[in-house]
């Protein structure tokens, strides 16, 4: 039992609960049809009637991040000039901000 004073967690009870619920879920799964369709034409990926790409297993897992946070990345790229002096200025600026936060709050 892990007790922090703010909360608690008992791994053993968690595992016991996990085992109990796993049995229920596997029971529900067993209620379902066990047969799988194995015919070649039915197991082909749906790709709107076109032949599906051969290999597509999360090849670019970060696409969503770049797409959704495009503006952030573009701004960050502009800041990364490659000039060492710029990075030192940024370092000094961030240290000053952190010092101000620590001292005044």
């Amino acid at each position: 039992m892990i007790v922090t004073g703010l909360g608690s967690w008992s791994p053993l009870i968690f595992l016991l609960c996990f085992a109990t619920i796993s049995i229920i879920v596997f029971f529900i799964r067993c209620l379902g049809e066990k047969e799988c369709i194995k015919e070649k034409e039915k197991t082909v990926l749906f790709f709107s009637g076109n032949p599906p790409p051969i290999e597509n297993r999360a090849t670019n897992i970060y696409w969503g991040f770049f797409e959704a946070m495009g503006r952030y990345y573009r701004r960050m790229k502009r800041i990364h000039s490659g000039v060492v002096n710029d990075y030192v200025y940024w370092f000094v600026f961030v240290v000053v901000v952190i010092m101000c936060v620590v001292i005044f709050l």
């Binding site: 996990f18 379902g32 990926l45």
Partner: peptide, 25 residues
């Protein structure tokens, strides 16, 4: 539950079948 399952031919079968179980658990 009465319908047959279809596992795509290129799928990682054990992960494909395990994830619904883990989601519900």
């Amino acid at each position: 539950l009465v319908k047959e399952s279809i596992v795509p031919e290129n799928a990682v079968k054990w992960l494909f079948n395990l994830m619904p179980v883990l989601a519900l658990i």
